[in-house]
Structures are given as C-alpha cells and as structure tokens.
Simulated assay, not measured.
Amino acid sequence: MQILLFILLLVMLPSASAATVTNITNSPNTVAPLLPGLDAPKLTLKNSQGKSVELAQLYKNKTTLVVVYRGGWCPYCVRQLNGIQKIEAQLTKLDVQIVAISPDSPKELAKSTIESPNYMLLSDDQLAYSQALGLAYYLDDKTATAYRNKLGVNFVDLNGKDRVALPVPAVFVIDKEGLIQFQYANPNYKVRLDEQVLLAAAKAASAL
C-alpha cells in the first residue's frame, strides 16, 4: 500500500522545475547558435497571461525580431529591451514585430512595464526554445549559487543533478518563411548589439 501511494505521489507531483535536456552546454563560450539560412524553431510558448502562442503562426504574420534574454532580473537585459523600444516605431513601419523570450515564468513576465501591440513577451521557462536555438548553457556552481534564489528556476541534467541554466543573450531576425536571416549572440552577457545595427538587419530582412 505504501509503495502504491509513493507511485501515485510521483505521478501527481508537478514537473515544471525540470527541463527536458537536449542541448545545454557547460559554458557560454561553447554554445552553437543556429546560423542564418536555417529554420527557426517552431515551438509553442506562453505569453504573460499564460496563453499558448504558436511561433510557427507568429512567424507567418510578419518579419520577426526575436530577442532572447536572461530574465527581467538582469539589468543588462532590461537596458537592451528599453533600447529596442526606442526603435520600435521604425520597426513597426517596416512591418517587423518584436518578440522577446526569456526563462521568466508568465507570472514574472506580467510584471513587465513593456506594453505595446507590436512587442510581445514570451516565457521559455523550460528553456526548450533556447536549447533549440543552441543558446542554453549551465552556470558554474559558484554563479548558480548566487543566481538560484534570484531566478527561482532550476533545471535537471541527464544525470539527475539539480543545476541552473540560462540562455546566452541573442537576437535573431526571422522572415515570414520561418528562416533566420540575421543572428547575433555574445557569450559576454554585458555586451549587446547596437539598436541601429539591429534596425539595419531588420530592414534588410523585411525587404526580401
């Protein structure tokens, strides 16, 4: 009877804290982001209201600027998102939509002050999209200890050891066919792409 109860508890326990590990490296310097010309991942993520959003359909609507960031707790990411807002009007004229994706939960995304019909925040709290893009990496033990409580998101590796993972910050410009036309990723999370360079890349992709 006790064994049966134990099995039932295992089945009923939520698994939201454990990501399915398919492509997480041990260092930000060893990630291998998808290159221009390849298909962008067509997964389903959730928005700040917890509603499912199919990326395949989203890509078809407009040229898409995808910003992958570490989370709303990261000051460098917040600065980047605010900087992109400065060119939002120009991107809108080019018929380019902005989709910012992070490991933050939908609940955390709902705290964001970014409000715009052309600027969508999506949750990749299982890091599935970041893994598909080739951006996910495990934090070293020292950094993980410092970040764990701040993030509130844990991931489990193939050996069952509890570890913390993040995406390398990156930007992608994806056309209506779902093809990556531009990519920039930097293992140094403090370095972000200049907004004017990003605007030029978006303009080139939207002209195709």
Results as ranks from 00 to 15, higher is better:
residue 26 N to D: 07
residue 135 L to C: 05
residue 183 Q to H: 11
residue 44 T to L: 03
residue 19 A to I: 10
residue 155 F to W: 14
residue 92 T to M: 06
residue 79 R to Y: 08
residue 41 P to W: 11
residue 122 L to F: 10
residue 146 A to T: 12
residue 101 I to H: 04
residue 98 I to G: 00
residue 127 L to Q: 11
residue 198 L to C: 01
residue 152 G to A: 09
residue 176 K to Q: 10
residue 129 Y to H: 10
residue 74 C to G: 05
residue 192 R to K: 08
residue 125 D to A: 14
residue 145 T to G: 02
residue 118 N to H: 13
residue 10 L to K: 08
residue 155 F to R: 12
residue 199 L to S: 01
residue 157 D to G: 03
residue 66 V to H: 03
residue 102 S to D: 08
residue 3 I to A: 14
residue 198 L to Y: 01
residue 86 K to P: 00
residue 170 A to W: 14
residue 146 A to Q: 14
residue 53 V to M: 04
residue 168 V to I: 12
residue 21 V to P: 01
residue 31 V to F: 03
residue 59 Y to D: 04
residue 184 Y to A: 08
residue 114 I to N: 04
residue 69 Y to C: 03
residue 78 V to S: 09
residue 113 T to E: 13
residue 198 L to Q: 02
residue 174 I to D: 03
residue 189 Y to W: 08
residue 75 P to M: 04
residue 138 Y to D: 15
residue 62 K to T: 13
residue 58 L to P: 00
residue 132 A to W: 14
residue 37 G to H: 12
residue 42 K to V: 08
residue 146 A to F: 07
residue 28 P to T: 06
residue 33 P to R: 15
residue 5 L to A: 15
residue 74 C to K: 10
residue 160 G to Y: 11
residue 97 Q to D: 09
residue 205 A to Y: 05
residue 113 T to C: 01
residue 155 F to M: 11
residue 143 T to R: 14
residue 49 Q to R: 11
residue 39 D to S: 12
residue 206 S to L: 01
residue 67 V to I: 15
residue 188 N to C: 01
residue 166 L to I: 09
residue 150 K to N: 10
residue 56 A to W: 05
residue 49 Q to W: 11
residue 6 F to Y: 12
residue 64 T to M: 03
residue 130 S to K: 11
residue 8 L to W: 11
residue 57 Q to P: 00
residue 46 K to P: 00
residue 93 K to P: 00
residue 134 G to Q: 14
residue 9 L to W: 15
residue 125 D to Q: 14
residue 72 G to Y: 06
residue 169 P to E: 07
